[in-house]
Design a binder for these strands. Sequence first.
DNA 1: CCAGAAGTACGATCGCTGTCAAACTTTGAT
DNA 2: ATCAAAGTTTGACAGCGATCGTACTTCTGG
Lengths: 107, 107
Amino acid sequence: MGRTPPHPDVSQFDLQLVLEALVDPVRRSIVSQLDAAGEDRACGSFDMPVSKSTATHHFKVLREAGLIRQYYVGTSRMNALRRAEMDEAFPGLLDALTARRTAVARG
Amino acid sequence: MGRTPPHPDVSQFDLQLVLEALVDPVRRSIVSQLDAAGEDRACGSFDMPVSKSTATHHFKVLREAGLIRQYYVGTSRMNALRRAEMDEAFPGLLDALTARRTAVARG
DNA sequence: CCAGAAGTACGATCGCTGTCAAACTTTGAT
DNA sequence: ATCAAAGTTTGACAGCGATCGTACTTCTGG
């Protein structure tokens, strides 16, 4: 569907949801890749050892936790890291987790 | 028993294990209480909504992730937060998670 | 208009983990 | 010696979530 999916507001960010999102290695890798890229990227452009349907699931979890913002460009769904807002809600958290320690594991 | 349980060395701290430990609300509460107390505390002295056997499980997970150090004093098992070592391995992580967000000012 | 590309939606597994109760161990006090 | 306190161990169970394949939708290019 072309409609924009629901995104939580910064005031509704929940630490529990954020941690549940970041505890998964695949999702943490997505965040790291997005952070390293410094620009928005399509779902399909990520290096991920899972199927497309599983990838969709991971992006949804990240979006609902407030970690990424998603919007369509043609058939591609773009993903933007909501770093400033995360830093506002949980100062230091993303810094601690994106510290070039990235390892992509098969889970 | 009575013997000291195994503790990982700082050089072997693993981010994945640490996050898996901290994603559980009960365990995060233990860490927060330990941090707020500023001193070692016995297992039974924590405010936890679970049974003793479940508590034992949580302390074990925290210990194996390197978040706490455990030692016996009489029949009590004391718990110490390994903050300095955690800060060394993952700078800013515990700070971000033990931040009291109810308060306003932050020095 | 049609084919392909990019994702989503939907079930269905399947393993993991948080939970408890019950039995046990160790220590300290009476 | 006995008893209670503090945890541990074991075994079982329930629910969640990561995974996949298949079918479906939407958009773009020819």
